[in-house]
Design a protein around this nucleic acid. Structure first.
Lengths: 337, 337
DNA sequence: TTGTAGGCGTTATCAT
DNA sequence: ATGATAACGCCTACAA
């Protein structure tokens, strides 16, 4: 590929002048400018960003780490959509690194982006512990921002959601409707989100003096398939219940399908609530209620601030989001709208 | 940040030796190796990939450009999932550039990846014409591979699917079942895929001597919402029909929802078929038939070959995929399985 | 086995 | 207004 030197020779000037023309810094006569542009055309010159970034010590790039266990499903799409949109609105580029499916690999992904000299990094951790994230954030001068985790020491580097409160609200809604036999499908319990949502369920029951029945709790793994299995497990246990709370919408979908499969009518016989990590509305069967958590806002807010900070602004990101309960049918359109 | 020079000083050796230790090329005594590793630990040294890539003239990186109008929805997730998985299996990294929503921006995205010196580029074009893609592929020495387009001059750089044939098969299935009043919801007609699927519909009717009724054709825009609108349009036209073919699954979902909304029973009163760009199964309402196109295979195949080629293999990618008709209920699990 | 030195393609600081 | 020239951090012959 043509380099700057070739352009310079062709235009009969020095590299420095070509650089000036390209960057717009410094004075260059109109005449030489023209010659340079002409030479660029002729040679098909394209700047080498590696060289430029090396020289300038900045890459105009934002790194994003997400585990690929999230790649399926709408949550991730939404995250990426907003991240891409916002970074490019600022004339930057987004680089995605796969966190794959272990803490070690999430660490590597962060390291890669760091080694690539991204100006800042946003991570949605799935396997790295809060403690380690805290350490990582501290031990690097480059800004690292954490989504959906509450850091203890660097809380200003995190954006999180009160999953316990949201879950509690959801369950209390059911209680208010007269339900007392409420089954609960957990998410993966190695994730804080999963633990917090379960804890909100227990809290709600306890507050309303409803005895906890362990046999109404089934462990799921965030996937539709595990929602399906959860229903079978409950039926096999011969439990009676009038409502099921699934720890996310994906599992809720599985639950709905399986109830339908067994000829159980919704919501006449059993009510179902899921947590709306993101709007699944376009794909949903009506008559599922869901707790909507404004993830989109959370993301926008975060990326927006990170970028702001890169331009020299303040760095205060800590935010606390909660959710609202919405009946599924009221959702006219999903992310496509 | 600590550089290689600092490590060298600390270990009492030259940069070259440190480089050898890191790359594993050349002889280094065990003793100095130890000293170097120790120095690396102490200084918290991390290689600067910009510098390394500049020096080696390779980035071990695969660029991917996709329009962000696809970011929502499962198709994109699947694409990204496999792309990420395959590139990292090969020890490479994936860089995603947003094609945004115009030909110009798709061009820019490609250019950016080229300027970043990605080893190869995969693009799923949405706005760039086949002709221009052909030109682009030709005018760059770096490998560029095109998904879902059939290039005329560089067909070995493309992987595509016979959308017309698939569509025709789908419609003929309905005809075989006795349907004659078959409505069709198109995709965006500025995309080849949209045009081809419509053309397959017409071909099927024509082959079976069923007169084409323009009023049974409604134009959609690939989204669930446009599927919803399509149903209303058909009803407003007071058309009679016993089946609806939607040009993709997203629209099919919208169609189903709206039929349901109007109290029309499926499939007793109206049958619905969609095109399974990707497995939406976990979210689907039973009793929708769908044409499954093995996009996943297509993607794997493509990325796999690109990577193979980077390692010095041949470069023969041209492939033609078709689809098979499957009833929705036979799909046990989606991408989560 | 190790060190020296030149190069990768830019930017940026001086002079001129 | 323009040209040398030294970084930027790493790799890689070529010597020693």
């Amino acid at each position: 590929m043509a380099t700057m030197l070739e352009v310079a020779k062709r235009a009969g000037v020095s590299k420095a002048t070509v650089s000036r023309v390209l960057s717009g810094n410094g004075y260059v006569s109109q005449e030489t400018k023209d010659r340079v542009f002409h030479a660029i055309e002729e040679s098909g010159y394209r700047p080498n960003l590696l060289a430029r970034n090396l020289a300038t010590q900045k890459t105009q790039t934002l790194g994003l780490v997400v585990t690929n266990t999230l790649y399926h499903g709408v949550y991730f799409s939404e995250l990426l959509f907003h991240a891409a949109r916002m970074t490019e609105d600022q004339g930057r580029q987004l680089i995605l690194a796969d966190g794959k499916h272990s803490a070690e690999e999430e660490r590597e992904a962060i390291q890669y982006l760091l080694d690539m000299r991204c100006d800042a990094i946003v991570i949605y951790p799935r396997f790295l512990s809060v403690e380690e994230m805290d350490e990582i954030v501290e031990s690097h001068s480059r800004p690292i921002v954490v989504l959906n985790r509450r850091l203890r020491h660097n809380s200003s580097h995190s954006v999180f959601c009160d999953h316990k409160a949201t879950s509690q609200v959801a369950v209390e809604q059911l209680i208010a409707l007269g339900h007392r036999d409420i089954a609960f499908v957990t998410g993966s319990l190695d994730s804080p989100t999963g633990v917090e949502r379960l804890s909100g369920y227990k809290e709600a029951l306890s507050r309303h003096n409803i005895p906890l029945r362990e046999s109404l709790i089934v462990s799921g793994k965030w996937t539709p398939a595990s929602g399906t299995e959860a229903v079978d497990t409950l039926l096999a246990r011969q439990e009676t219940f009038s409502a099921i709370v699934a720890s996310n919408d994906d599992m809720a979908v599985g639950v709905l399908r399986q109830l339908h499969h067994h000829g159980i009518r919704i919501p006449q016989q059993v009510s179902v609530i899921g947590f709306d990590d993101i709007a699944l509305a376009p794909y949903m069967i009506p008559s599922l209620a869901s707790v909507r958590i404004p993830v989109t806002e959370m993301i926008k807010e975060t990326i927006g601030r990170v970028i702001f900070m890169l331009d020299g602004g303040e760095f205060k990101i800590q935010q606390r989001f909660t959710g609202e309960l919405i009946p599924r049918d009221s959702v006219a359109n999903g992310p496509y709208a």
